[in-house]
Amino acid sequence: MKKYPEILLFCVLLTGCSSETISDRLYTQSIGLTCDGSLSFYAENFNQEISPPVEGISIAEVLRQEEAQNGGKVFIGHTELLCLDGTCTLNPAEELLFEKGLSPACKVLYARPEEYFQNADHASLIHIIRMSEQNGLLSSTELATALSEWHGIWETALLPVQKPGRNMPGLVLLHKDGNCTDLSEAAAQGMYWLRRNTGSFTMTLQTPGGEQDIFIRNCRIEKQAEQQELYYHVIVRTGTPELNSILQNLIETQCQKAIQEMFLAKADVIGMQDLLEKSGIHPEKNMTVKIHLSVTVQ
């Protein structure tokens, strides 16, 4: 009983000594990874201060070097953007997600990190990507989704990319081995309708009477599989019924474009593998799959 005050005092003192303070950490907003022989790590904090890249053979080593360089523990729990150039995709990203605390909602951008961080406007890109997703211009792409797609049979993920000379990002299909296929604008928009997206927004349609705005309440997709024939039914609810037919045609065109370009790139970013497994088929990389597309605008 008499020793309790001493033990308590010891614990109180320990609380000051043993752990770093909140300001000792380097809170990164964007990070980049590239593997040219060795792993290179780029980091930028929330004050847009970019630290010089460090190299190492593993994530643990590059983080250690970054900490030594900056004099503070690297904290990636709030990182909003991961920049990958296709040279290293899977293992470092998985390690960052499951062991180092990277958020699964972190956006993954296809770009060379050194070019990305040198671009003066790169800081706004994160916000542009986010707003584009909210406004139906870009399909949602997150780290967890990308990793899941890379682990599929077709080993390809859908990532945003910064197009030169354009503010709006585009989409690419990035294979696990680094091969990359650009998607056209129509295909990129088609991906929005075909992937799991929620939210409402207003878009502008080209009509015979000129440009008109249409309010999209929500969009959902119903999928079915019968053997190797897959049925995708896109259902869109709008607030402007008189423009529904025009919208329907547009969505059909965009979705068909997206599917076409996806097939050309031998990719699956619309959940074909899950559908095939659900119907009892073990998917293979070179198997022939037929997609029946239908669109309903209500």
Partner: peptide, 29 residues
């Protein structure tokens, strides 16, 4: 603040970091 800053959003963590930068003692102390 000390062990699980990922629970706070980035704006809040930056405010706290700025505020704690000048403090000579650790948070618990």
């Amino acid at each position: 603040s000390m062990h699980h800053p990922e629970l706070l959003n980035s704006t809040l963590i930056l405010i706290l970091t700025d505020a704690e930068q000048k403090a000579p003692l650790s948070l618990p102390t």
